[in-house]
Design a protein around this nucleic acid. Structure first.
Length: 587
RNA sequence: GCCCCGGUAGUUUAACGGAUAAAACACCAGCCUUCUAAGCUGGCUCUAGAGGUUCGAUUCCUCUCCGGGGCACCA
């Protein structure tokens, strides 16, 4: 049990003993809005009703009843109906610093998931199309959730589903042949596309042309449909072109996943399931789960208040569920999860409800969940690849890297190019993820690239900078001592009496709350609380950093402060780790 | 028309039904011979409206207004 939990339990036990029966629980405790009031508080409204006294009277009587019986508590006060506890800095420091030192990278984890298997599907990108900041939000959120679930004791399985076979592919390939082909038939020399460094991005550009033409030009539209049919035959030149270009996109995705340090246990592709889905449809019609209507095949879900879902259009072409239904079966067969969660933007809520209902009717027993998040728009309105009103992943990354290089150079004229670049890339990747995670999943992100390029305030850079400052102090202390021996965090009791500053007490309290934050992020399925917590912790530390010297303090105090710094660093690193962000030694 | 999400400071966002609604950005005024100024300190300004439930509502319920999204063959 974590230090703060243990303290809360002791407090609750003492209160219940004083009352003579179990009237309060740990979950009744709150944190006072003002730190002056205390560290932990019990609102006495509920028990006052049962006791037939006013809340203020109950609080008063508890103060005298409790006396000074609780070891970890230094003082108990009332503020009207609130019973406020102040925790002894020394005992908090003693338990907490030992705990963070011993558990290190495991500090904050818990077992509430009880090994329950949860499969998370995210980063559902389309091949032959742009990878933009909308996808970045999906993958950052999904990856953070995967890490959060794991930290909460779940057996979390990250998977991805790539849409590589829709009509958008035909649009791209048709436009590629029509407008971007500079080879003669049978010519083996590479096309200009193959000469470009980033073929995946090149395809995105081709897609825009294809999408435009299919909208404005009837002939083009028909030719694109013809292209789709040819690809579906799975042989011939068009199919080979599909294979080749599909690989370009997949290579681009792999590169992005590597950059973002995102790993999947398995990646599923639509092209692997679409045929199985088409074969499945007549069987589902026979079972009465699907039916023919107006020439199309639909799922009539009116009786469940879910409207109607078209599965096969009247021209025989497939819609999403055709592949999604067999995919769900394949996912279950492969991983046998208790819960299968789909991290998909909120606009598709209805579709996912419909899909889940169909899967349920087919006999799926796993819990099906839609983890919805709002979309990313630009200050000028919604993103649209057709109008070109998008911010691509690559564009954002490049701008961030350039900015970070400039900022880093200004501060470290002695660093070589390589070190500057490596630092800048870590900063850029961290900023990209953090900007996507720091707001709740339910908030629409109005993505302003100028704000994303900001390195001060509530940003990843601020957090990394805070860690770098701590590292810098440790580096100085190591230089001062023998370089040979590895410094260890001092956890002897005699040091903890030395932590007497209010800012030290507050820092300890913040650190002690971290495990609760991790748990809550798992329960709410939203990692944004972690980013907010980390920012506040960093603020608390920076405040401390400015108010109190570490290296120049007298030896015992210095050791105690160094231990506190180490604990702060552990929490910052662990928390950032849950967001998929790695820290920098210096910056 | 029905359904879903939102409406909080000039802007972007926080706030398990708890105390005086909080940060960041922007703007103004300060702080580098204490450990990295990518930092710190101070100032300015907020719950769309009306009811209800509650000891207590930004939070829960109802209605209205304003954004955004979704509702059978566009992905």
């Amino acid at each position: 049990m974590y230090t703060l939990d243990a303290i809360k339990n002791t407090i609750i036990k003492a209160i219940n003993q004083t009352l003579g029966e179990n009237k309060v629980r740990v979950s009744d405790l709150v944190y006072p809005p003002d730190k002056e009031m205390g560290d932990i508080s019990l609102p006495c409204f509920n028990i006052s009703k049962e006791l037939g006294k006013t809340p203020a009277e109950v609080a008063q009587s508890l103060v005298s009843g409790l006396g000074s019986t609780i070891d970890a508590v230094s003082s108990i006060n009332t503020a009207g109906p609130y019973l406020n506890f102040k925790i002894k800095t020394t005992s908090l420091a003693k338990d907490l610093i030992k705990e963070t030192s011993r558990q290190s990278h495991d500090y904050g984890k818990n077992k509430s998931g009880k090994k329950k298997k949860i499969m998370l599907e995210y980063s559902n990108a389309n091949t032959h199309k742009e990878y933009h900041v909308g996808h970045l939000r999906n993958i950052s959120y999904g990856d953070a959730l995967n890490r959060v679930f794991t930290a909460n004791g779940y057996d979390s399985i990250p998977v991805s589903y790539i849409n590589d076979f829709g009509i958008h592919v035909a649009k791209t390939l048709w436009a590629l042949n029509e407008y971007f082909k500079d080879q003669e038939p049978g010519d083996n020399k590479p096309s200009s596309a193959e000469a470009t460094a980033d073929k995946g991005e090149f395809l995105a550009e081709v897609y825009v042309k294809g999408a435009q033409e299919s909208k404005d030009n009837e002939t083009a539209k028909r030719m694109i449909e013809g292209m789709m049919k040819k690809i579906e035959t799975r042989k011939g030149l068009e199919f080979e072109l599909w294979q080749k270009t599909r690989d370009w996109s997949i290579a681009q995705f792999d590169k992005i996943y590597t950059e973002l340090d995102v790993k999947f246990e398995h990646i599923f592709y639509e092209s692997e399931y679409i045929e199985a889905g088409k074969k499945l449809i007549p069987k589902l019609v026979k079972k009465g789960i699907l039916k023919e209507s107006q020439g199309a095949v639909i799922a009539d879900l009116e009786e469940f208040d879910l409207g109607v879902l078209v599965v096969l259009r009247s021209d025989g072409t497939a819609t999403y569920p055709v592949a999604d239904i067999p995919l769900a079966g394949a996912k279950q067969k492969k991983f046998k999860a208790d819960t299968s969660a789909y991290i998909v933007d909120i606009a598709q809520s209805l579709y996912l409800k419909q899909l889940f209902k169909i899967l349920e009717l087919i006999g799926h027993k796993e819990e099906l969940k839609h983890l919805a998040y709002e979309f990313v728009k630009l200050p000028g309105g919604a993103m649209s690849s057709r109008t070109g009103n998008i911010v691509s992943y690559e564009e954002l990354k490049q701008k961030l890297v350039n900015k970070a290089i400039k900022e880093t150079k200004e501060r470290h004229s002695d660093w070589d190019e390589e070190k500057i670049k490596a630092t800048a890339i870590t900063l850029a990747i961290s900023a990209m993820k953090f900007e996507m995670i720091k707001v709740s999943a339910k908030a629409i992100i109005t993505f302003d690239i100028n704000k994303a390029l900001e390195f001060s305030g509530y940003t990843a850079a601020y957090l990394l900078y805070t860690v770098a400052r701590i590292n810098s102090i440790f580096k100085k202390i190591e230089n001062r001592k023998q370089k040979t021996e590895n410094r260890k965090q001092k956890t002897e009791n005699r040091y903890f009496d030395k932590l007497k500053e209010i800012s030290e007490h507050e820092l300890l309290m913040q650190i002690s709350k971290y495990p609760e934050v991790v748990k809550r992020a798992g329960e709410k399925m939203d990692p944004s609380g972690i980013s907010k917590f980390l920012f506040e912790l960093a603020q608390g530390f920076n405040d401390y950093y400015h108010s109190v010297p570490v290296l120049k303090a007298e030896e015992d105090i210095r050791e105690a402060r160094l231990a506190l710094l180490q604990s702060t660093k552990t929490v910052l690193e662990n928390g950032l780790g849950l967001l998929g962000i790695t820290t920098l030694e210096e910056m």
